[in-house]
Every structure is written in structure tokens, then in C-alpha cells.
Computed example of a mutant assay.
Amino acid sequence: MTGPTGAGLRMRVVVDAEERVRAFPPHLGEVVARGLVVLDRCRVVRYGGRETDG
């Protein structure tokens, strides 16, 4: 999938505690030059977790 300029589309998803996510937007100008930033709640429908040794 590509955008209007032919460049590949990118999407990053951040999942963390609400207070940490809400503290992040002031720093967006440092990491996002252009594009759309969406802050929204989500509903987890499945969580696979991580494998642990032992």
C-alpha cells in the first residue's frame, strides 16, 4: 500500500498506561514532521502475552 506520493504508508501504535500516553503529545513535533496523529481508547479483544523461560 502506498500514499498519494507513492511513499509507503506507516502506522505506529503505542499502548501504555493512559497517563503516559497523554503525556506524549507535547513531544510529537520532535518525531512527526507531517501526517495524522490520533489519540483514542481501544478495546483489547485478544492478548497473546509473551513467552517466558522456565
Rank of each mutant, 00 (worst) to 15 (best):
T5A: 11
P26W: 03
D40E: 11
R22T: 02
V44T: 07
R46A: 11
E30M: 05
R10Q: 11
E19G: 07
T5N: 11
V14Y: 14
V38Y: 04
R46N: 13
R41N: 08
A23P: 05
M1N: 12
E18M: 04
H27A: 10
P26N: 01
P25Y: 01
L28G: 00
G48P: 07
G48V: 12
D53K: 15
T5H: 09
R41L: 06
E19D: 13
T5S: 13
V15W: 05
P26T: 01
R43L: 09
G49H: 01
G29D: 05
R46Q: 12
R43N: 04
Y47T: 12
R50N: 11
R50F: 15
V37T: 04
C42M: 12
P26C: 01
R10W: 14
R12W: 14
T2G: 05
R22S: 00
R43Q: 07
G54A: 08
M11T: 12
C42H: 11
G3I: 13
T5E: 11
E19C: 05
A17I: 13
R22Y: 03
R10E: 15
L9Y: 11
V21A: 03
A23M: 04
T2C: 12
A17T: 14
F24I: 06
R50K: 15
L39M: 10
R10C: 08
R20H: 10
L28S: 01
Y47R: 15
V37P: 01
T52S: 13
V44E: 07
C42P: 04
D16L: 03
P25M: 02
G35F: 02
L36T: 15
M1C: 09
E30H: 05
G6Q: 06
E30K: 07
V32I: 03
M11H: 09
L39S: 08
G54N: 08
R41S: 08
Y47A: 14
P4I: 09
L9C: 08
A7K: 15
R50Y: 14
G48N: 13
V32N: 00
V13A: 00
R41K: 08
V14D: 10
M11A: 07
E30G: 01
P26L: 01
V44S: 03
L28V: 05
V44K: 04
E19P: 08
H27C: 01
G3W: 11
T5W: 07
V31C: 04
R41C: 01
R34Y: 07
